[in-house]
Design a protein around this nucleic acid. Sequence first.
DNA 1: TTGTAGGCGTTATCAC
DNA 2: GTGATAACGCCTACAA
Lengths: 341, 341
Amino acid sequence: MTVTIKDVAKRANVAPSTVSRVIADSPRISEKTKRKVREAMKELGYHPNFIARSLANQATQVIGIVMPSAAEQALQNPFFPEVIRGISKAAHEKKYALQMSTGEKEVEIYEGVVDMLQGRRVDGVILLYSRIDDKLMKYLQKNKFPFVVIGKPHQKAEQITHVDNDNYLAGKEATEYLIARGHERIAFVGGNKQYLVTVDRLSGYEAALKEAGLPYREDYIMHEEFLQEGGQEAMKELLSLADPPTALVVADDLMALGVLKTLDEMNLRVPDDISIVSFNNTLLAEMSSPPLTSVDIHIFQLGYEATKSLIEKISNPNEPVKRIIIPHRIVERLSCGCYQK
Amino acid sequence: MTVTIKDVAKRANVAPSTVSRVIADSPRISEKTKRKVREAMKELGYHPNFIARSLANQATQVIGIVMPSAAEQALQNPFFPEVIRGISKAAHEKKYALQMSTGEKEVEIYEGVVDMLQGRRVDGVILLYSRIDDKLMKYLQKNKFPFVVIGKPHQKAEQITHVDNDNYLAGKEATEYLIARGHERIAFVGGNKQYLVTVDRLSGYEAALKEAGLPYREDYIMHEEFLQEGGQEAMKELLSLADPPTALVVADDLMALGVLKTLDEMNLRVPDDISIVSFNNTLLAEMSSPPLTSVDIHIFQLGYEATKSLIEKISNPNEPVKRIIIPHRIVERLSCGCYQK
DNA sequence: TTGTAGGCGTTATCAC
DNA sequence: GTGATAACGCCTACAA
């Protein structure tokens, strides 16, 4: 049925191994037989069977992408398509294929990835998140599977290749940006505290307040999902406070969108009544009304670099651990105003 | 190193074939040995090797996703993450994994997919687009590879399982919507005419004009890329006309965004100066200023149904050809006004 | 430079 | 019910 290496061999009057060598373009084969074999391949319409090759090679040339939650949910946030764009570019350059995890709950994802790796479907994986005490990450490390994480590993970060932003600094700068505009009651709206991004940006926020001699208030700290609904929830709670904030550091554009929505419903205006600095600088930040001042973290590059590092690691298991910090920068738009008492 | 079926067999004092049967939960194995074998698997931490299994089975339980262009580019349009969400859900339900094509140019994609299939990396593919005279589609058909397309196949649509909207009708309704509001100079901004979506929506547009006794003007028809830039280009051209349109049917939200951008730069207001009906009803439509009246084509469902159909086809090659039409509906927002002479 | 043979980890077809 | 054994398609020593 399907034409195999043997068929080609017969046709070209050589041994299967010779064909195999031609495929690998081995220098030990004469140009003449190479030509002959290649011609036979053309004539028969031969295509190498990756699966068979993978089995023999113990390598698949496939990289696994692991999302923090069901793709179904994660992909709602433009962060993910954007990282995947970067990943895709780098993978393509090195001729790697991409496979996506598809699990709903955390355990399912965990098992899915374990199967992916143990089942030798992929040569390595990229974690598109980093959370505290992550079972999966520990597993990967223990079993010495090639992987890189986008974000900062919770523990043993010096032993795990990762690509991250300086989220502490970014959080600090975002906050300082608001402080510089006279704000004193600044709230923080972030994702789940399990995520390192949240933790880091929050500490940056905290540091900025401290340096400015402003009080750190528990009731100004919100943790919600990285979705619009999360932002809405957070904003509602903040507005129910006796003295609501005059400015917000929001850790994600999509969340910020939710924040804007709630503010709009409450007839509050941005930046007149409340200022916002957001994160990610996705298209959403540009499009919202008002457009959001947002910290560009270069998502694409995050994915691109992570993939390059992973591939290096796959091809050379002794590759030293790397830590790559992608620069960030605040992109000013219209969501911040000066606070006037 | 890695624990195989043989190791398990030894440990459980059975033959490898028995272990294999236990994995497949064959009814011909006694509960007692099953228990014994399963215990051995636990103890040794056995994980089946998918690759080996695939080779023996001639099936991978992986579905390939084929985008119209480099993922790097396509993923900029929220349409794609959204279909993938649907695909991911259905795939997960049936325990299929997902692999993405990663090619830049059309030829590269073509070859990538051919390799995917011939290399037996995937059991079937989903084309996330449909274009005229598509080489790849012909290839798939000729070689009888399981595939489904999202969109309407150009030729032999009755022989190809596909999931689509009634884009003709949708285009017609969108146009009628504007006509009903008094507009007579209505332009069409679509994607490349190679794409069937574009063609279909355009014919719907044309039909609506005809029925209303309005002239069809070549200079009101724009074909650009499905990106913001495309919308900007189109709008610029339209505005350079002696008598620019008072309303637009734009075949994609992201393009519509570009349109809005250009209009804004020109100090034209929507809907006061120009009305817009867009397509896809992504988050962008909701967020833009003004929010766009947009035709919801239920992207998620498109992906979900396509995947279910593909999996059926993979498991049963004799599955009859299917054509699934996903309903659409216009979601009214603030981008349309009445035309007053 | 090329051929032979064994192995990669499973499944499937026979036997017993 | 369970055990050999031969595929699946390719790669890679080892020979020649």
